[in-house]
Design a protein around this nucleic acid. Sequence first.
DNA 1: CGTACCATTGACAGCCCTCAAAGCAGGTGG
DNA 2: CCACCTGCTTTGAGGGCTGTCAATGGTACG
Lengths: 250, 250
Amino acid sequence: MNRLGLGTLGGDHVQKLTAPFLCRLKSLVPLTPREEYFLEALELPAHAFNAGGHVYAEGDGDLPPWIVGAGWACRLRVLPDGRRQIVTFFLPGDTIRLGDVDHPAIQSTILAMTDLTLLNASRLAEAVARADDSIANIVQACRVTFIWSQAQLLDHVLRLGRLTALERMAHLILELHYRMQDAGLAQDGRFPLPLTQSQFGEALGLSLVHVNRTLQQLRREQLIELKPGRIAILDRERLALLCDFRKPAI
Amino acid sequence: MNRLGLGTLGGDHVQKLTAPFLCRLKSLVPLTPREEYFLEALELPAHAFNAGGHVYAEGDGDLPPWIVGAGWACRLRVLPDGRRQIVTFFLPGDTIRLGDVDHPAIQSTILAMTDLTLLNASRLAEAVARADDSIANIVQACRVTFIWSQAQLLDHVLRLGRLTALERMAHLILELHYRMQDAGLAQDGRFPLPLTQSQFGEALGLSLVHVNRTLQQLRREQLIELKPGRIAILDRERLALLCDFRKPAI
DNA sequence: CGTACCATTGACAGCCCTCAAAGCAGGTGG
DNA sequence: CCACCTGCTTTGAGGGCTGTCAATGGTACG
């Protein structure tokens, strides 16, 4: 299909590309020096995808597990008449098909939402599957990561089923904020947000036009500040109150 | 809270209570005689819950994994203002907290939707975790079961995000049909459907009134027949076409 | 300087919700 | 046996949230 740019990048970027993943792990569990060294020594091969390209198309065979190094991806369902529903976002530091299950029965597609660099995590997956004692914390962190991804799916169901457009938007923004923060990519409520309003709509079950009006309302009420590609949360408490957002505890 | 009827039932019912689970396993993988004997020899203890009672309340400690013997349950999220969203249905033969993860972070409640009998599956869970070679097919079936439950979650997201009320209803009815069929509880498109219209609404993100009107439309168009507690699908093909329902393949 | 993509704005329609009231069982007690 | 209650279903009326259609502006890029 529309698969692009599968070339391997030079090794000098790899170090930085693992930073979000490492940061996220450390936000979940403390790592021993040995475990940190283990992760750095893995030298995961990087692959680049262009914005809009398929990481995984329905019907593809087995693919390796990935770690998102840079850029955003999503899991997507498409209807015959063109309606699209984004099911999951994959942010830097997130894992794809690691613990999080994948299988043809899932009937979904994984798409690069921006230019994207993924790290092939096969070697990590093998070590985690063996559950070596020497990386017990990493294994535990992967388990927690999986539980969180489940919680995020339930959050998504709640948003789509029971929240108004304004609430949905606030709730999603807060979720993305905390996830970017755990990956070390948010400072002081500000973080990169490379989504178009159309993509917001595809995630939240709203039309592009209504997404636009909803975002304007959040701005009018001094809750967020939005520049192309970046967002700033101005009043996290009021935003959380608006949509009953609760960050899950470990 | 509203926890009721935790008494243990007599052992003579247990045999029949495992039938839906056994039937579902066999619909996924062939079982060896030895595996069938293994399951029957487990003698899982049964617990009864009254309709409306909590199986698991947010904040409860660890509970055993369950197999649904009879009756329906659901996983539910509740908002402070009373809005409710059903996230997952648990039908006879389904497993709860087995493979399917649970954790306080999931922030949800498990409720008995009807009078309910659950089987404590701790002994099964231990055997599956050990991954004994002698029950390889059962282990495999549990893996597939988990993948299906993930696919059902994605289906639910798609329904809530992108389908109209009529489509949502048709899609859910078909999902429930196939699940009941795999459990050996549907014949010829007819199966017990103990949900109230209000519960339908809580699952599909619709109001009670609109559920009522939507069901009437499905009846008017000769797609389903509905009696209290039972449903019959009159034209499965047309119903599936209406909502792009695709049964996931193994 | 077009072209393409994204954000923005207005008008209008439609799906779905809320409020309200009336049937319709099944169960309970007098 | 009947009255009453409770919970579920059904029906009507009206309103609001959100979608669709259409057009404009802005910005990056070739």
